[in-house]
């Protein structure tokens, strides 16, 4: 009788664990197939590992660097560029003929466009091969852009070199047209802004395509850093 009782007690003690084990097993088995997909969706929906609050305002950091305006040292046709970070002031565009003296930031968004012209981060850095695409607002930094003509000379100064361009072509395109701002194999500079319209801008973009005529990489600065 006591043996029966002990079996009965053991069975009652084991029962919750057995039920829990079976339930856990069923849930695990049911989740095997959708687990990967669920993980992907969960990671996509909750991917901010820092768990930052949107009111922290810890977003874009704008770096205002000093760009070398006069350089008397040795230069070279080839050299290394210093890759800028998003939000960093890394160049200045000047035109001798027009009142154009614009700071250029790496990356493009609404906040940076308030500070100066923006070099699209999907385009080439000034001094590298490919299409360097720079845009700015028509009522501020690129207000004079529409006055540029073919043959005008533009210079871009950076902290690693000075680059001279000549305007080759005047362009007009729709904001949805990516032809002039797509990557290219040849080295060029594309500047564009919105066409001024009644109260603000339209969907039309105007700009210039410039060809590189002279590269002057600063070699003295490279030696100093070495």
């Amino acid at each position: 009788m006591s043996k029966k009782r002990s079996y009965s007690t053991a069975a009652h003690i084991a029962a919750p664990f057995i039920v829990l084990a079976i339930c856990t097993g069923i849930i695990s088995a049911a989740l095997i197939k959708p687990a990967d997909k669920l993980k992907v969706y969960a990671n996509l929906a909750f991917m901010d590992s820092l768990k930052s609050d949107p009111s922290d305002n810890s977003g874009l950091v704008v770096r205002e660097n000093e760009i070398i305006s006069t350089y008397d040292g040795k230069t070279s046709k080839t050299g290394e560029v210093i890759r800028p970070k998003f939000g960093e002031l890394y160049a200045e565009i000047k035109s001798s003929r027009l009142d154009l003296d614009v700071p250029v930031y790496w990356g493009s968004n609404a906040e940076l466009l308030e500070h100066g012209a923006c070099n699209s981060s999907s385009s080439a850095v000034v001094g590298t091969e490919g299409n360097t695409v720079i845009s700015a607002h028509a009522d501020t930094f690129f207000a004079e852009l529409e006055k540029l003509k073919e043959g005008d000379v533009l210079t871009i100064r950076t902290n690693y070199g000075k680059f001279t361009y000549k305007v080759k072509e005047l362009i007009t395109f729709n904001s949805s047209d990516r032809k002039y701002i797509a990557p290219t194999e040849d080295t060029r500079l594309t500047l564009y802004t919105c066409k001024k319209d009644l109260l603000g801008s339209s969907a039309i973009r105007i700009g210039v395509i410039c060809e590189l005529t002279k590269s002057e990489f600063y070699t003295d600065i490279e030696e100093e850093t070495e």
Partner: peptide, 8 residues
């Protein structure tokens, strides 16, 4: 942010 492009 849009005021620069819309002038409004």
């Amino acid at each position: 942010n849009r005021s620069s492009s819309t002038s409004i």
